[in-house]
Amino acid sequence: MSHANAALTPRHRLIVGRLVVDDGWPISEVAARFQVSWPTVKRWADRYRTGEPMQDRSSRPHHSPNKTNQQTARRCVRLRLRLREGPVQLASRLGIAPSTVHRILTDVHLNRLSHVDRATGEPVRRYEHDHPGSMLHVDVKKLGNIPDGGGWRYVGRRQGDKNRAATPDKPKNKHYDPLMGKAYVHTVIDDHSRVAYAEIHDDETARTATAVLVRAVEWFNARGVTVERVLSDNGGAYRSHLWRDTCAELGIRHKRTRPYRPQTNGKIERFHRTLADGWAYARCYTSEAERRGELDDWLHYYNHHRPHTACGNLPPFSRLINVSGQYS
């Protein structure tokens, strides 16, 4: 098919070739008749003379020595499906440019994940504090405990129920089904650097939440970060007197989000999705203890090695200066 601005259609190109080659018309007269340039008429006349088609030639090169090989493309697709990471993170793993990863994902229609676009009907308002420690975001991510042998997400509902029933030392509900319980991941993330701290507990009480906050503040202080403010939702632990008194002892100003407005604490909500995709549901764990044992290693990868788009495609720890073990 000819391009949108072509003066000659394939049918008229054929007429031009016949007039010049078969009927012996001068090129200048044919060019004046069809209101095109002399080189255009000569080009189509030469192609007609050699028996070439009157269609546009493909602009694709005959050889592409720098083309991404199929093995890398297939690995890119597999990592996208398994890890649900973006082009920047996948490019770091594959050793290629983020634009190349995006092209590969676009070719296989994987450039958008179903849960990426969450339209709220309101303009997106972004903010970022200007130095580490100016604001910490805190929240709790609840996860169902994994039975011995693997959970239903990977082994299926039927086998998952069998694994639940076979897991020892679990209480029963009124239907005599085992209660696996929940894992409460208490997460803390710095607003400026996106450096994350997390602990797993069996509850989300005020005593547990305040103890996590104290240890998180000590952890950030050891890395040269002085915590000034903390932002939380309106959960019971964060409305307690114990939380209020602990913040006062630490010299931290506590702020809460507007009720039913999780977007205000969106940085940690987005971190929870990264946490779920990269650690909690990244692979088939055969027990809850195995999954919990992997959290520290994943947090180290997230803080020290995983490229973050908010940090200029650098790891979060790159925004902390002169920290011991920063480049490990």
Rank of each mutant, 00 (worst) to 15 (best):
N69G: 09
L94H: 06
I104P: 11
E249A: 14
Q55V: 13
D46V: 04
R82M: 07
A31I: 12
R215Y: 02
I15C: 06
N303Y: 12
R33Q: 13
V225I: 12
H192G: 06
W298M: 11
P65Y: 14
K42G: 09
Y301S: 02
Y197E: 09
E128T: 11
A282I: 13
T167F: 07
H3D: 07
S28A: 15
Y285C: 01
D296Q: 13
T257V: 13
H175Q: 14
S328R: 12
R82G: 04
K142Q: 12
T68G: 03
L295K: 07
T264G: 05
G325H: 10
R256K: 12
Y238C: 08
L113T: 00
D46I: 06
I252E: 08
P65R: 12
G235H: 09
H102A: 08
L299G: 04
P98V: 01
E52D: 14
G236E: 06
R84P: 03
A206D: 06
Y48W: 08
P316A: 08
A289L: 13
I15S: 08
S287P: 12
N173R: 04
K170Y: 00
V101N: 05
A73F: 00
A6S: 15
S324F: 05
Q55F: 04
T210Q: 01
S114P: 00
R253D: 09
S28H: 10
Q326V: 10
R215V: 02
R57D: 07
K141M: 14
A165K: 11
D148Y: 08
V230L: 07
Q326C: 12
Y176Q: 14
Y260Q: 14
S324P: 09
L94W: 04
W219D: 09
K162C: 03
G181V: 06
D296I: 01
G86D: 13
G236M: 04
M1Y: 10
P259R: 01
H272M: 12
G236P: 13
N163C: 09
A310M: 00
V20E: 05
N66G: 04
E294L: 03
D296F: 02
N313Y: 12
N5E: 11
S92C: 02
N313H: 15
Y281E: 12
W152H: 10
P123K: 03
L179C: 10
A289F: 07
V212G: 06
N69Y: 05
N5Y: 14
H175G: 04
P98D: 11
L213P: 03
L242T: 08
V195F: 05
T120G: 05
R291E: 13
F271D: 00
Y197G: 06
R157C: 00
N145F: 03
V217N: 00
Q89K: 09
R11V: 15
Q55P: 00
P262Y: 07
